[in-house]
């Protein structure tokens, strides 16, 4: 198998890298779409390439070649990969599937704690928590300590922010991105960025709802600085730095992307789609014309 067969995957990888920078040129909504869709395409393209390597390698095993009705390989690697490489590809694919399933189970377990949430649910815990529980009916869980610490506008900010998560199905973006990262661990920082972008999206939606971006910024800062919101060092919150970035984004003027930058962001996805299709085409091509 020549390395050229990986060229489509390489192109998709470049698109994912480009998508990392999308938040700098377009708003959070489009940036999230571009980022998550290129992550999905990269995962698909990788799986297709691995399938092809697996097929090439395994078809060199005489027994399998006979079953498939393909010609037997005369020397190792004649079909493009040795049987050993094929087995490695199969194991990699299995590991990807297994890790994705474990992630799905983790999400389900976490959600099972909150099946009774319908609409607004107020809980009595010391930590200032507020989060959206997706699903139908779904809703928002807020701790009374959070509500007590906030004034009226800030309460509305929190509610509008969490409501945006529900209304725009942010959990779907987050879980898709996390599933890709479970399958391909190097995508983990990209999944974290996707989570961050859903927060930015919800912040901007809340800002529209209350009619002030700086009101959202100060609500974020206020909750972040509540003494009860301090995490012990060993449990350092990954999104710690994100809070500061969100605050700064809301305090700086809203960026209106130009048409050319929007076009650039959309073309990134278009290129990634074409490359993924090409990768898939190569697999079909290989399966129908065994060398």
């Amino acid at each position: 198998m020549s390395w050229q067969l990986a060229i489509p995957l390489l192109i998709v990888t470049l698109a994912v890298v480009a998508a990392w920078f999308a938040p700098h040129i377009v708003g959070p909504v489009l940036a999230l779409w571009v980022l998550v869709s290129s992550m999905v395409l990269a995962t698909l393209a990788s799986m297709v390439l691995l399938l092809q390597i697996a097929a090439a390698g395994l078809s060199e095993v005489p027994f399998i070649a006979d079953v498939l009705g393909w010609c037997r390989a005369i020397y190792g690697g004649q079909h493009g990969a040795t049987p050993l490489v094929g087995v490695v590809a199969v194991i990699t694919l299995a590991a990807m599937a297994w890790r994705t399933r474990s992630y799905a189970r983790e999400v389900r377990l976490s959600r099972d704690n909150f099946t009774e949430v319908e609409g607004i649910t107020i809980v009595d815990v010391e930590r200032p928590v507020a989060f959206a529980v997706p699903g139908n009916p779904g809703g928002v869980v807020i701790s009374r300590s959070m509500l007590d610490a906030l004034d009226k506008v800030e309460r509305r900010v929190v509610l509008a922010h969490e409501n945006a998560h529900l209304r725009y199905h942010h959990h779907a973006f987050v879980h898709t991105a996390n599933s890709c990262a479970a399958a391909i661990p190097v995508l983990t920082p990209f999944a974290r960025k996707a989570v961050f972008l859903t927060e930015r999206w919800a912040d901007e939606t809340a800002a529209e709802k209350v009619g002030s971006r700086s009101a959202v910024a100060s609500a974020i800062a206020k909750v972040a600085l509540l003494p009860t919101n301090q995490a012990p060092l060993f449990a350092q919150a990954l999104s710690g730095g994100d809070v500061i970035t969100r605050y700064e984004a809301l305090e700086s003027p809203k960026r209106v992307p130009r048409r050319t930058t929007i076009l650039a962001a959309v073309s990134t996805v278009a290129i990634a789609i074409s490359a993924t299709l090409l990768q898939f085409h190569q697999l079909i091509d290989f399966a129908s014309h065994p060398r």
Binding site: S110, V129, A132, I220, V223, A224, D242, I244
Partner: peptide, 21 residues
């Protein structure tokens, strides 16, 4: 852990980040 997959308004911060903010 039981909240790891939820979207929080603001995650818990470590003291250093609070100081920075």
């Amino acid at each position: 852990d039981s909240l790891a997959t939820m979207s929080h308004f603001v995650a818990s911060l470590d003291p250093a980040t609070q100081e920075q903010l």
